[in-house]
């Protein structure tokens, strides 16, 4: 522990409290039915797979569950020759 910590009074309990509040707000909302963000992720990937042949390694999905707003970021590398024949 440094002397700076003593002065800045940075404690860990408030962080724990905030993290729990956000997490539990999401978990409580998703009890019984599946998590909306996770569902969107699955369906978006399914739609893309229908049209484009995608390499699993080339898909990056990021989710951030926030207090009021969550974000879902799907990043897919699509090679030129990957378009599936309709």
């Amino acid at each position: 522990m440094s002397i700076f910590r003593f002065f800045s009074k940075q404690t860990s309990a408030p962080t724990a409290r905030e993290r729990l509040q956000v997490l539990l707000a999401h978990e409580r909302a998703s009890v019984g039915h599946s998590d909306l963000v996770a569902k969107l992720r699955e369906e978006i990937l399914a739609v893309i797979a229908k049209h484009v042949q995608v390499d699993g390694d080339k898909v990056t999905v990021k989710m951030d569950r926030g207090e009021n707003v969550s974000t879902l970021e799907v990043d897919i590398e699509i090679p030129l020759n990957a378009v599936r024949a309709a």
């Binding site: 404690t11 309990a13 408030p14 409290r17 509040q21 539990l24």
Partner: peptide
């Protein structure tokens, strides 16, 4: 530890 802010307090857990 709770008083020092390094552990969740009783009230924190109760509120959550």
């Amino acid at each position: 530890r709770a008083e020092r802010g390094d552990m969740l307090k009783v009230d924190d857990v109760l509120e959550i």
